[in-house]
Amino acid sequence: MSDESKSVVGSLAHVGITAKYNFLNYFRARRFYVMLAIIVIITGLLTTLVGYYRPPSFVGGDALGFYGAGWGSFASFVVVLSAAFFGGDAISGEFQNRTGYFLVPNPIRRSAIYVGKWLAALAASTIILGVFALAMLANGLFYFPGSIPWEFVESFAFAWVYLVAAMSLAFAFSSLFKSSSISILMSVILLLFVFNVIDTVASLVAGIEPWFSITYAAGIISDVLNVPYPAHKVVTSLGAGRRFTLAQFHATIPEGLLILGVYFVVMAVLGLVLFERKEFTS
């Protein structure tokens, strides 16, 4: 092959190439089908339990109530699991599994590899989230035929934005650690437990709005399914003489989207910088 026949490939094309082959790898990997199985189990359980017990919270009101109880309760969980499954070891796996030794020593920038892998992980996760949304939609249409609330569409869009931000965070952890299991575990623990504990402590105990928390912002996914939209701050007085007050915060939609956007940008930059500086040492 002559040098003249080889073309110079731009970084944008490299992003597309990396995304294509990584998506192919995700799509054929066991973990994709494990995630699908988890979605099938969640929706199967919901469908069975709702069909058998007919709980009022699901079928006692309108379609919005149904989506609020089903989709609103589980969408964040599906997002976190998808981000951790597909993004948690996307970069650390290149080091631990040594696949980086095949890909990195080529005429390709690390940033193109990072962005390509991020897009592939996002695409795989979007399929999982989409399957869950379709399953919820099928259930919803069974109980409330012909009624798809606009708020459900909004909620799906917010869940996807949360996925974008959570994926950035998972990738940042993936760039920080060289062990796949540690980076996946850190992503799950943070997104499922630590941020939720921080939200609770900040709002209920300290009375501070947890504007710095990604899971607080993700509350818009379920909040948008409540009509009217919950008040920004709800104060409950407790005890004799109502001396104790507990504050509960709900991010407004613009605030929630802004926080998720900031998480996406900050974590994307942090993860990229970490990956650029990380060395392939044994």
């Binding site: 192919l24 799509f27 040594r98 696949t99 095949f102 390709i108 044994s282």
Partner: peptide, 19 residues
Amino acid sequence: KAAMASCTTIIETPEIYPS
């Protein structure tokens, strides 16, 4: 990118995406 354009390598038995 320019340096590696005409250089190929095997360093420390690389692994390939298993799927």
